[in-house]
């Protein structure tokens, strides 16, 4: 049997909420724009949350970085390779 997983705001770990509310969610610039990264006095917890450093590499547990479906980095690389290929082909067809 699956055990009951209740979810209430007050009981939820703050990190869970911060991660979603500050780092995810729709970003559409309102009239006031705040770049968390630019705030000098930002609490260390928040800074670590929004910083791009990923502990996974450091720890050597990063199996998903190989998965192009999951990894944006891998996706970018794939796109770059494809772009280069298109470029080459275009040059060739012009010549």
């Amino acid at each position: 049997m699956a055990e009951q997983m209740t979810h209430s705001i007050n009981a939820t770990n703050l990190a869970d909420i911060l991660e979603r509310v500050l780092d995810k969610g729709i970003v559409i610039a309102g009239d006031i724009k705040i770049q968390l990264a630019d705030i000098d006095l930002l609490n260390i917890k928040i800074r670590l949350l929004v910083a791009s450093v990923d502990k996974a590499m450091e720890m050597g547990i990063n199996w998903w970085q190989q998965d192009s479906y999951l990894s944006t980095k891998a996706k970018e690389k794939e796109t770059q390779t494809l772009e280069k290929r298109v470029e080459r082909l275009e040059k060739r067809s012009k010549a």
Binding site: N13, A15, L18, E19, I44, K45, L48, L49, D54, K55, A56, M59, I61, W64, L70
Partner: peptide
């Protein structure tokens, strides 16, 4: 399904 950043102990406590 989506994999997010692993968070350090300072954040997770």
């Amino acid at each position: 399904a989506k994999i997010n950043k692993i968070l350090p102990k300072e954040v997770t406590e």
